[in-house]
Nucleic acid binder design. Structure first.
Length: 650
DNA sequence: GTGGTGTAG
DNA sequence: GGTTCTACACCAC
């Protein structure tokens, strides 16, 4: 909506795969809800406008802009997802109190929780009263600078600020006074409404006969400890009582960057190869913008299973050798191919390719991100702000301050898609917090599964029925990496293409003569990047007492004109390297070469230029062990054939 | 450090 | 009939 204001007043849903991950208030009024299936949503609201939201780039950027903006007012900002922020505004409040001791006496701005049933006097809660004004100002700034609206909650802890922030929606703010804590906790409709109590914990509560917040408040602590252990029991009990003493911890730069895609079924190594490449490509772009160097790489999969269809994930991770890490940071074109090697090794560790498999998700993740002082590159990016701003120094500075004064917090949430919220809290009388919500983003990346092939082959190399295509040399075949062999032999490969190639197909072949004719094709999958919508609503305080900035929630403009999902990366690699065809070794078929993925093309060309052998090295279909070797012994031997890294089985 | 689980938006 | 895409915290090992 920010990018396309025209969408502001129509029912709008953000679609990821087959579900509506979020929607604007116009759509909600017609019965559309979060996580509703698209078909159901269309039934409820036939005029619903859908925007693809798989690509989170825009949301992520807006989300960080908001956090960054809040940090300019006070460094104690803790992110919760893409669309909420907690702020500890104790210091801001204390300063105002010092500068103008009477400032808190006048009023609250926005709503006060339960104000009809309590005797609200701002003078009794000067810090919360000031906090309500700070929240209002912040919401105003957020609107004027970013165009985002949202709600805020103001109270004395993150828990309370969060709970109260949604009391009046959209685009409004509410302050919770200490004397209303019992009321708000009692108003929660079920234990799962307590932040931090999710599905699993709620089930365990239920098994104990606990259903309401009241049930938990009254449940003997000893019994709770028996079920959850000391720490969790105490924490859960406190939450039920409205007690939360956890500090607002500045979030800083993300500790990991990941990219994932889900799908109905993926069962061939070839598809995996392509999917991983796509995910990695996009992740590498993000990583490079971030500027830090990842030290750890993780590959996660989700397998289909009839019982636990969607929830079990398995992962494998490994350190990223420094030389590769540096390439990632520097944006070297080698990075992708080298990471593919690592990724496929991990894949083979977690999935037995000789057996049938059915994956429904793949995730790639960089973690253990290190700020290399050397990389001062990307200054402009939003995330690099976080990468380079030392949240530590800011935080410790703040905490020092806080220790001499009162504790307070400011919570802010912004919902990019829908609204922003702000909440502020104060501890008793001496503390105040405020929270606001920022933009929420959600989207997905859509993947196109490529497949197809041209090989009529067989099954496993060892299996009796295995037959290679007539033009395939068994010797050469044997030298191929296991997963390529499998791929060639897999049912999807053996017949024709199953999935139409929507995009520039590339043939992925080991470029040696015997196999040159028929290999598995892997097309590039693209991510169709969509524009997200962000909308926000910021509601101004409309209090009975003082209505300060009431805004009609307008929303934004996140959509470029047609809100058309932009295909940002349609890769049409092939051609670029083609001109260098003159450098082809004699035994290479240019047509086959032209269909190789660009990275492979580049690598081959580079190696040919250096007159390095291609596919020379015998594969030791080893598992595991050879890894260490690869990482270390790389210096020279690696050069023997970089392409191998693509093929090497773990 | 690794891998799994739970939670959240 | 079908549940997205991130990111983080915690735990056991």
């Amino acid at each position: 909506m920010i990018r396309n204001p025209a969408l502001r007043n129509v029912p709008l849903g953000i679609q990821q795969k087959n579900i509506i991950v979020t929607c604007n208030y116009v759509a909600r009024e017609q019965g559309v809800t979060k996580l509703m299936f698209v078909t159901d949503a269309m039934e409820k609201c036939p005029q619903l406008v859908l925007v693809k939201g798989e690509d989170l780039t825009h949301y992520r950027e807006m989300s960080y802009k908001l956090t960054e903006l809040l940090m300019t007012y006070c460094p104690l900002v803790e992110r919760l997802g893409f669309d909420e922020n907690f702020m500890d505004i104790t210091e801001v409040v204390e300063k105002r109190l010092r500068d103008n001791p009477e400032s808190g006496e006048y009023s609250f701005t926005g709503h006060v929780y339960n104000n009809a049933s309590i005797n609200v006097k701002a003078i009794d809660h000067p810090r919360l009263a000031i906090g309500s004004h700070v929240a209002a100002e912040l919401r105003e700034v957020i609107y004027s600078k970013l165009g985002l609206t949202g709600c805020a909650g103001i109270s004395t802890s993150k828990l309370l600020a969060k709970l109260v922030s949604g009391t009046f929606k959209p685009n409004q703010q509410t302050t919770l006074l200490p004397l209303s804590v019992k009321d708000i906790m009692g108003s929660l409709n079920g234990l799962q409404k307590i932040p931090g109590v999710g599905h699993q914990t709620a089930k365990r509560f239920q098994a104990l006969g606990l259903v309401s917040v009241r049930d938990l408040q009254l449940f003997p602590l000893a019994d709770l400890v028996r079920e959850f252990g000391d720490n969790s029991a105490q924490r859960l009990r406190n939450l039920a009582l409205g007690i939360d003493d956890t500090p607002v911890t500045p979030t800083g730069a993300p500790q990991s960057l990941s990219d994932e895609d889900s799908f109905k079924k993926m069962s061939s190594t070839k598809e995996v190869l392509q999917k991983v490449e796509d995910l990695l490509q996009s992740l590498l772009d993000r990583m490079q913008k971030d500027g830090r160097q990842p030290r750890t790489f993780r590959l996660t999969i989700r397998r289909y299973s009839a019982t636990n269809k969607w929830f079990n994930r398995e992962s494998k991770q490994c350190p990223i050798p420094n030389h590769i890490g540096q390439k990632i940071t520097s944006g070297s074109s080698d990075a992708l191919a080298q990471l593919m090697t690592i990724a496929m090794k991990l894949f083979h560790k977690v999935v037995d390719c000789y057996a049938a498999f059915h994956l429904t998700l793949i995730n790639v993740c960089f973690s253990n991100l290190q700020t290399s002082s050397a990389t001062s590159s990307s200054k402009g990016s939003i995330t690099s702000f976080f990468a380079h701003v030392t949240s530590h120094s800011r935080m410790s500075q703040c905490q020092d301050d806080r220790s001499q004064s009162t504790v307070g917090r400011f919570v802010q949430e912004a919902d990019l898609m829908r609204k922003t919220e702000t909440s502020v809290k104060t501890n008793n009388w001496s503390n105040e917090l405020l929270s606001e919500k920022g933009p929420v983003a959600s989207s997905q990346s859509e993947s196109v599964t490529g497949s197809t092939v041209g090989l009529g082959t067989k099954k496993k190399p060892n299996s009796p029925e295995c037959q290679l295509p007539l033009n395939a040399d068994p010797e050469v075949f044997r030298l191929l990496p296991v997963y390529i062999q499998n791929e060639l032999l897999s049912p999807t490969c053996t017949h024709t293409s199953q999935t139409p190639l929507n995009h520039s197909p590339k043939s992925f072949t080991a470029a040696t003569s015997p196999l040159k004719n028929g290999l598995c094709k892997v097309n590039n999958s693209h991510h169709i990047t969509l524009d997200n919508m962000d909308v926000l609503k910021y509601s101004g305080p409309s209090d009975k007492q003082t209505a300060i900035n009431h805004r009609p929630s307008l929303d934004q403009q996140m959509f470029p004109e047609g809100a058309s999902p932009g295909e940002e990366k349609s890769l049409n690699h092939v051609s670029s390297e083609r001109s260098s065809k003159s450098k082809f070794p004699l035994d290479i078929d240019p047509m086959v070469f032209s269909e190789l993925p660009p990275e492979i093309q580049r690598e081959l060309l580079s190696e040919w230029r250096q007159q390095k052998p291609v596919l020379k090295i015998p594969f030791s279909k080893k598992q595991g062990k050879s890894q260490a070797k690869e990482k270390k012994g790389l210096p020279k031997s690696t050069q023997a054939n970089n392409l191998l890294k693509y093929f090497k089985s773990s």
